[in-house]
Design a protein around this nucleic acid. Sequence first.
DNA 1: ATTAATCCTATCAATTTAATAGGGATTACA
DNA 2: TGTAATCCCTATTAAATTGATAGGATTAAT
Lengths: 139, 139
Amino acid sequence: MLSKKTKYGLKALTFIARSESGMPVRVGEIAGSESIPQKFLETILLTLRKAGILGSKKGKHGGYYLRSHPSAVKMTDVMRVLEGPIAMVPCVSLNYYEKCDDCPDEHQCSVHRLMIEVRDSTLKVLRNTTLEDLALKDS
Amino acid sequence: MLSKKTKYGLKALTFIARSESGMPVRVGEIAGSESIPQKFLETILLTLRKAGILGSKKGKHGGYYLRSHPSAVKMTDVMRVLEGPIAMVPCVSLNYYEKCDDCPDEHQCSVHRLMIEVRDSTLKVLRNTTLEDLALKDS
DNA sequence: ATTAATCCTATCAATTTAATAGGGATTACA
DNA sequence: TGTAATCCCTATTAAATTGATAGGATTAAT
């Protein structure tokens, strides 16, 4: 399951990408428009800022803005920041590899091989999708 | 993340598929060989039996066996039984569809569209993989 | 009968998730 | 200079999920 955190984060990024004005977007505005609890969204956008995806401006007329053009914001990056590893098992993760304690030899593990295929197919989608694609309207 | 339940279940199914004798396989034997807590595995195999994937024989010399040839056991079915929906959001699930409360129109939801693509690519893998594939040794 | 197995359901502890709380720090601008 | 608006930070909490265990009931072979 996709966490609410990730879902809210993606919606917020889309909202910011669509807001063409170039001005920082207030958390409250996003929260209101997208039906997201504001305080929760604050922590999410903070995470995205710390990850370098968003920038922020404090104080009156402050808010969040994209650090790069939407076409340069890859879903792989966003998902890793918000949802964590893309792989479904750590022993198959490119960025967060970890050995399983219940596997003497992962090259003979049937689950391992299946999960590599799932990971690769998911990666293909996420690598080929950017925030610009998400921000397109309709269909 | 793949749950332990699913991981254990897949390993157990692989073990049974590899055990060519045709005789029912005891839970204890699988648990021992695959380092799975036996009592936990009992409940998992029970689930697989209730789903029609495994059959069982009670009493002495009892155990679990496959109801179909490994090549007929699709990963889509196994995953749905053990892990639940393949889609990452309910509004994109083929078998467990549910509307999101925070989406006025899901056809305009950017997350929705992305998740359809992820679902389809995962489905393609899972539909094309059977227990027979998992049971192949090595690489 | 005895033994060895599955079957069933309840329960528990740990973790994760979703959300809230309560301010602190910074900035615009009157 | 002061005040309102905004992001920043961390802690806490409640609910849900997960992983595992417990304790027998039932069934079948010998």
